[in-house]
Simulated assay, not measured.
Amino acid sequence: MKISGFTFLKNGQILGYPFIQSIQSVLPIVDEFVIALGPCEDETQKMLEAMNEPKLKIIHTQWNSKMKDRGYVYGQQKMIAQFNCSGDWVFYLEADEVVHEDDLQTIKSSMQKYLHDDEVEALVFDYLHFYGNQNSYLWSPGWYRRAPRILKNTIRSYAPDGLFWLVLEKNKIGRYPKAALVGATMYHYGWVRSEEQMNLKSKQVQQYWSKSHQSIDYSQIGQQIIKEFRGVHPEVMKNWLPDAFEVYHADPAYRLTRKEKKHQLMLMLEKFLGLELSKKHYKLVR
Rank of each mutant, 00 (worst) to 15 (best):
N133W: 10
N153H: 00
Y189W: 02
L115R: 10
V182F: 09
K108I: 05
I80N: 03
H60L: 11
E53K: 03
T185V: 07
N133P: 10
A95D: 14
P177G: 11
Q82I: 05
K68V: 10
L115P: 01
H129N: 13
K68H: 14
W165H: 15
D161P: 00
F130G: 05
P54F: 02
T185S: 04
L151M: 15
H100P: 06
V182E: 13
T154A: 06
K68F: 03
P141V: 02
G142E: 05
L166V: 08
F164C: 12
Q76H: 13
N64P: 04
P160F: 01
E121P: 10
V98R: 00
L138W: 00
K170R: 13
N84W: 08
Y158Q: 07
L93M: 15
N135E: 15
R145W: 09
D117M: 08
Y131V: 01
V124P: 03
Q112T: 11
V120Q: 10
W89Y: 01
Q77W: 01
L151D: 05
L104Y: 11
V124A: 02
Y187V: 00
E94Q: 14
V90R: 08
V120T: 12
V167S: 08
W139K: 12
Q77Y: 01
G190L: 10
L166C: 08
Y189N: 03
K78M: 13
K170D: 15
M67S: 08
Q62S: 12
V90Y: 01
D69F: 11
N64A: 06
M79H: 02
G162S: 09
L128I: 10
T106Q: 11
W89T: 03
I58Q: 06
P54Q: 02
A147P: 02
Y176R: 08
R146W: 06
E97Q: 15
T61N: 05
E169F: 10
L93C: 14
K57H: 09
A184P: 07
L181C: 13
I155C: 05
V167N: 07
S157M: 13
H116I: 06
N64V: 03
A180E: 09
H60C: 09
A95M: 12
F83H: 12
P141W: 01
